[in-house]
Amino acid sequence: MQLFPCPFCGPRDESEFHYGGHAGNARPDGAGMPAEGWAGYLYLRPNPKGTAREIWVHMNCGEFFVMERDTVSHTVLSVTTLGGEHAA
């Protein structure tokens, strides 16, 4: 079991959280977006060894946030609620 820090609730069991994708993968805008752009948005994922920025949601309180963590050591480096004004 690993503890993840919810920006609002504090440390909670990892089973209370759900992964929401890597941060910064914005949905393409506009009908003129080429197929490669859509393919990149839908299918291409970074798989960094080291620091990763990911979107997670704490399902019990509904808080969406960005978690920066190390994919090698599993150390959580930072959590920031989406919107930013309530950053932990």
């Binding site: 609002f8 909670r12 069991d13 019990n60």
Partner: peptide
Amino acid sequence: ATLDPNQASPSAALSFAGIN
């Protein structure tokens, strides 16, 4: 619950017996 009952948490919403 996996939560430490002596550790304060601002939200009372948690997983208990596997359910919200």
